[in-house]
Design a protein around this nucleic acid. Sequence first.
DNA 1: TATTGTTATACTCTATAACTATA
DNA 2: TATAGTTATAGAGTATAACAATA
Lengths: 139, 139
Amino acid sequence: MTIEMFERTLELAALLAAEIERKLAADGLTRSRAQVLRRLGEEGPMQQRELARVFDVSARNITGLVDGLVTTGFVTREPHPDDRRATLVTLTARGVTAAQTIEASRHELAEAMFAGIPEREKHAYRGVLDTLLDNLRTR
Amino acid sequence: MTIEMFERTLELAALLAAEIERKLAADGLTRSRAQVLRRLGEEGPMQQRELARVFDVSARNITGLVDGLVTTGFVTREPHPDDRRATLVTLTARGVTAAQTIEASRHELAEAMFAGIPEREKHAYRGVLDTLLDNLRTR
DNA sequence: TATTGTTATACTCTATAACTATA
DNA sequence: TATAGTTATAGAGTATAACAATA
């Protein structure tokens, strides 16, 4: 009954997405914008074209996401010191806090999600997960 | 390292979503529209309000999805025999075929995804999955 | 000439509110 | 008065193409 496991895996994905988006919405963020914040939190200020590259989306898309983040006060566009064409998308104080909150929420959700599962079963899950990822990647 | 398993679970979800959407796009469908087709394939003609109820979305949203499916030839709006306010969203021949193709693709993807995983590990995966779903639902 | 980012335009999903036709 | 579905309006994510400023 692989189809049943497949459906349940999709159900898990849907529940996870809903839970994550619920939290983000409470902080005034969408999933796409939060993804940008997380990356900026890890890497520091970045050019828009670099963001477009790492997320594999169009430049126009990044312009829109950054517009939204600027309007809501999470980032600013700073001039690039060496290239006057480029801007450096930079976290504000609020943006830094938000990025930290996102990380903390993810840890909290991860713990809650795997609560009550014995180490041994976690290992088994982890092993299967790696195979599933491999199977999907080489397709 | 629950956070790592968490991240990998999200990665799996993302890969699955991408794979599913890739296939659907090749058939001229989006995920939301395909969801409607699948339901119609299982239940037969349905009222829009019923669709809105089962997917827990607004009536407006269903109007838009059905508009798209009508334009692309997957469904028609038929008059409800007993209630002149209502329409019965009905699969066309093309819609029936598409619904069947979707189901077949899901089975195929499920098989490919779980290929090479011994029964015993599938069982373990299934068990953990159920707990994860429980943990997320009771939250 | 090539690159960075914006403007113009378009499509999709989603929502609330007002409205029409019907029950 | 309540319900089914549409129109009006709006926000968000995504894309391609044309364009301005700069490299």
